[in-house]
Design a protein around this nucleic acid. Structure first.
Lengths: 235, 235
DNA sequence: GTGTATGATATGTCTAGTTGTATAGTTGCT
DNA sequence: AGCAACTATACAACTAGACATATCATACAC
């Protein structure tokens, strides 16, 4: 019988350290160099252990930055999960949303048509990242007709949620008009944001929301890390 | 086996944004700092991407001022979205369905719970492939409580559609109770059936249908070739 | 009005540190 | 001999932070 490989015992050691809370979600592990010194092995052996933990979905490594601990995808009881996702679908928003950037520029033909504005009209584009339990689950790119609601871009930057920003410019009510669902593979940058491997399966929801006046108020794309989230539909 | 560098992915993203007219000629790109936030990378990585675009002659950077779009390519190779748009409610009931095989065996615990039968009860499992215009678009694996409807397996083999087979055993009315959506990568066999490459993104819909008597009549998984089909939800 | 000083903001450059990958070599077991 | 685990080294890709330098808008003096 072969003895257990060193990398396996290192993986076990790190796994239990994480489980015991020595390293909590979002935190950085010591550098590979530091770990290799601590365990008295070569850096590659530590890397082997870390790669194993990454395959298990426990940690995620970012080149040049470090190795970060991920939150275990919580298995919500079905009833609770249903409510969570229902809210998600109904309201189109998630808890712990972080706005990455908001830009304003002239609308291209495509966007203009979808939002029923003229090409060249001011368009607000918002990029945001949504978290659940500190782990990223969704990446969104939303387009708003700034031309019809001046100050919307500022409001999007200022307010934490889309609803609040829209309320700030006088849009009290809006509903999702249509949603198109498909699947894609994560690009390098999407993988970065969602802390996934490049090529990981993503669930893509493309939606159009309309305000009370019947005019489109948002046209967005949301990429969900399908390893961590499931969309549920109920009838 | 080297994955695509991040800066390349960013360059591609910016290049297509320019091509699509989101940033038009003479206009300023967002600042390097803003872009680095939006893409979730270090400023240096964004600079690498911009330098590449500058080498291509697409943009020009002026110290202290910003990065400006020089020219807009006439037309870019727009990935034609020749997708079939299908209604989500029709999931698993697409035209041109070909039943690959129908098996009957004892229900495992999981399936039994979902279909509200006892573990070990006869269970009909149907594997089918759906086409649209002769192209495979969906692969389905459906489970039916054979124990409650003896002869269902035979009917599934005989009849062309699920509705007809169910009608043959006295189930006139049934509705979809819930659908859960996620994304996966195609396995080798799935890729073969759907005529895709291995690892292609698939949209997975897991559903439960109930008959008029309120009992579950079907529990199925359908994998859609998301390159060829988009599910649409309308409200 | 015109010119100038100033502060905020933008790109350019540099240094140091961390993970990713490739190649080659060593050790121990079967 | 062959294989697997581990070591050793080097370089590439990316992060992090600091600082230099160019630009622009504004305010203020004249």
């Amino acid at each position: 019988m072969t003895r257990t490989p060193i990398w396996q015992s290192i993986a076990t050691s790190l796994r239990s350290a994480i489980a015991e809370g020595h390293y909590s979600a979002g935190e950085k592990l010591p550098t590979e160099a530091a770990l290799s010194e601590r365990f008295g092995v070569n850096r590659h052996t530590v890397r082997h252990a870390i790669r194993h933990l990454a395959d298990e979905g426990l940690v995620h490594a970012r080149r040049g930055a470090g190795v970060f601990v991920l939150a275990r995808p919580l298995d919500y009881p079905l009833s609770e999960r249903v409510r969570f996702h229902q809210n998600l679908l109904a309201a189109g928003r998630l808890p712990e949303k972080s706005v990455l950037s908001v830009e304003v520029h002239a609308a291209a033909e495509d966007d203009a048509r979808r939002l029923k504005i003229a090409p060249g009209d001011p368009l607000a584009v918002s990029y945001s990242l949504s978290f659940a339990d500190g782990t990223p689950v969704a990446l969104a790119e939303s387009r708003f007709p700034e031309v019809r609601h001046p100050g919307l871009a500022d409001a999007l930057r200022r307010e934490s949620g889309v609803s609040k920003a829209l309320a700030a410019v006088g849009v009290e009510d809006y509903v999702r008009a249509s949603t198109r669902l498909s699947a894609t593979s994560a690009t390098a940058t999407q993988a970065l944001h969602l802390q996934l491997r490049e090529g990981a399966p993503l669930l893509l929801a493309e939606s159009i929301s309309v305000a009370g006046d019947g005019l489109p108020i948002e046209h967005g794309q949301t990429w969900f890390a399908s390893e961590r989230i499931t969309l549920t539909l109920d009838y």
